[in-house]
Design a protein around this nucleic acid. Structure first.
Length: 262
DNA sequence: CTTCTCACA
DNA sequence: TGTGAGAA
């Protein structure tokens, strides 16, 4: 009595595609019990158990290739290695997803806080920030594709970074990325006069003037370089525009000089 | 119904 | 690492 089943019956039984079963065969991890005279594959209990084992390992993300190697020499030690490796991959993926999650939250938060601003100007407390330079430009020269391409190694994910431009009054402007460890420069902690705008790149010069005009009109004493932060990820919802945040450190009021009624 | 091959993600 | 289409 022939108790073996066809490939489609096996597929239905194990909730997988017929294709996948043939794929396992091609990769050498699951042979049919025999092939019928009509070339149809036939499977028995042994194959059912074997397939169950393979599917379990696949569910644990063990590569088919590894499953095959493990069938030849199945030391229990090697089996644990497979699962250890899977575990590492999973943890790396977990980390990737957590970072992705953080980034989405960051975009949402920054976008929300920007849209809630009543006006373009406000005062913002900044913690001290470590910056590492990655490119320098003449102040008259616009950032172009060619110079970016030269630096391509340094900047994997420009589109998601806060790019800091520092205008220190000299004729060059330096681009920085934020880093966790101390780098080329540190922005001091303190209160920053801040101007946020969503504009075409050409308008930036104009807004820089607005920034200093406003500071002068309000008698706000600025200290140190002008910081321009480009948050390209905030331009997600306004194509063609760039989001800039202009910041200047407000000089701390000298101790014994009254005059600030707050 | 099965088989295989090819192109595609 | 599979899937989908098409021919036989």
């Amino acid at each position: 009595m022939k108790s073996e089943i066809t490939i489609s019956e096996l597929a239905k039984l194990m909730n997988v595609s017929v294709h996948q079963i043939r794929y396992f065969e091609e990769k050498g991890v699951l042979q049919p019990a025999y092939t019928d005279t009509n070339q149809y594959r036939k499977y028995g209990m042994d194959q059912i158990y074997e397939l169950a084992r393979i599917l379990l390992l696949r569910k644990l993300e063990v590569p088919v290739q590894s499953i095959k190697e493990c069938m030849i020499s199945h030391s229990a030690d090697q089996q644990r290695q497979l699962l250890h490796h899977s575990l590492q991959e999973i943890e790396a993926e977990l980390l990737r997803l957590q970072e992705l999650r953080q980034f989405i939250l960051k975009v949402l938060h920054e976008q929300q806080s920007y849209s809630l601003q009543p006006g373009p100007f406000h005062i913002k407390k900044r913690n001290s920030t470590f910056l590492t330079s990655f490119i320098q430009l003449d102040s008259h020269m616009r950032l172009n594709a060619a110079v970016l391409a030269e630096q391509a190694n340094h900047i994997l994910n420009l589109f998601e970074a806060d790019i800091h431009y520092l205008y220190d009054g000299s004729d060059t402007v330096t681009l920085y990325l934020e880093t966790q460890v101390p780098g080329d420069t540190t922005l001091p902690e303190g209160e920053y006069l801040t101007l946020q705008c969503n504009i075409q790149e050409e308008e930036l010069e104009h807004w820089i003037e607005q920034f200093f005009d406003y500071a002068a009109a309000q008698s706000i004493p600025l200290l140190g370089p002008l910081v321009v932060i480009e948050r390209s990820y905030l331009s997600l919802f306004s194509p063609g525009m760039l989001h800039y945040e202009l910041q200047g450190l407000i000089a701390p009021a000298a101790k014994s000089e009254g005059g600030d009624p707050s």
